[in-house]
C-alpha cells in the first residue's frame, strides 16, 4: 500500500512539475529532501533518547507495570490480544497520556516502544498485527486535550480567547477516535479470523 502511494506521489508530482516547466524546482526538491529529513531526525533524536532514559527508570522500578495494571481493564477492551501484564500496555498508556497533554515529542518514543513490544507479540514480523493497527489509529486521531502549538500561534496573533479551540478539539477528536476504533474493529474482522 505504502509502495503504491509512494510511486503515485513521486510520478504524479514529477510529471506535473516537468509539464508545467518547473524542472528546476523538481531538482531542488529531490536534493533537499535528505537535508530536511536529517534536520527533522536531529531535532527528535535527543528528545527520543531523553524520554527513553526516563522511561527505562519507570520500567526498572516497576512503575510502568503499575500503570499498565491500572489501565488494563480499559485497554483490554480496545486491545483484546495483548495478554495481561505485558509491557506494551504500559508503553501504550504512556503514549496516550503524553498525546493528551500535547507532548508530541514524548509521545513518539513511547509510541515507538509500544510498537516494538507489540512486534514481539506479532507472529508474522513483516505484517502489521491487529493490535498494531488499532494503536496506529489511536495515534492518527491525535487525541489531544491541549494543542500547544495552535494555542501558542493564537496567542501570537492576539486572540481574545486562545484556548477557545480546546473544547471543540477534544469533542471532535474523541468522536473521530470512536469512529476510527469502530471502523478498525469492523475491518479487522475481515482480515484476521
Amino acid at each position: 500500500m505504502i509502495n503504491k502511494l509512494w510511486i503515485g506521489l513521486i510520478v504524479v508530482g514529477s510529471l506535473c512539475l516537468i509539464l508545467t516547466g518547473k524542472a528546476d524546482l523538481l531538482n531542488t526538491q529531490i536534493l533537499s529532501s535528505g537535508k530536511a529529513t536529517l534536520e527533522l531526525v536531529m531535532q527528535i533524536f535527543p528528545l527520543i533518547s531523553l524520554w527513553l532514559g526516563i522511561m527505562n527508570i519507570a520500567k526498572e522500578s516497576g512503575l510502568l507495570d503499575k500503570v499498565s495494571k491500572l489501565i488494563y481493564p480499559l485497554l483490554h477492551k480496545i486491545f483484546p490480544e495483548i495478554p495481561k501484564g505485558h509491557e506494551s500496555l504500559g508503553y501504550i498508556s504512556s503514549n496516550i497520556i503524553a498525546n493528551m497533554f500535547g507532548l508530541g515529542n514524548a509521545a513518539t518514543p513511547f509510541g515507538l516502544k509500544a510498537m516494538k513490544s507489540l512486534q514481539s507479540l506479532n507472529k508474522n514480523k513483516e505484517e502489521a498485527s491487529r493490535s498494531m493497527i488499532t494503536f496506529l489509529i489511536i495515534n492518527t486521531c491525535g487525541l489531544c486535550i491541549i494543542p500547544t502549538t495552535i494555542i501558542s500561534l493564537r496567542i501570537l496573533y492576539d486572540s481574545k480567547d486562545p484556548s477557545f479551540i480546546v473544547i471543540p478539539c477534544v469533542i471532535i477528536s474523541f468522536i473521530s477516535l470512536v469512529f476510527g476504533l469502530i471502523i478498525d474493529r469492523l475491518w479487522s474482522r475481515r482480515h484476521y479470523k
Binding site: M1, I2, L5, T108, G111, L112, M115, K116, L118, Q119, K125, E126, E127, A128, M132, I133, F135, L136, I137, N139, T140, C141, G142, C144, P147, I150, I165, P168, C169, I172, S173, S176, G180, I183, D184, W187, S188, H191
Partner: peptide
C-alpha cells in the same frame, strides 16, 4: 488541524521503525 495527526507520518514512523512491510488496511482506516 488540532483534532487529528499527520496520518502518513505516523504510519511511516511507527511501521518503518519496527520493520513492518505489509500495513494492511491501516492507511485506509486512518
Amino acid at each position: 488541524q488540532g483534532s487529528s495527526d499527520t496520518t502518513l507520518y505516523v504510519i511511516t514512523l511507527y511501521f518503518g521503525t519496527v520493520g513492518i512491510k505489509k500495513i494492511k488496511y491501516a492507511l485506509w482506516a486512518g
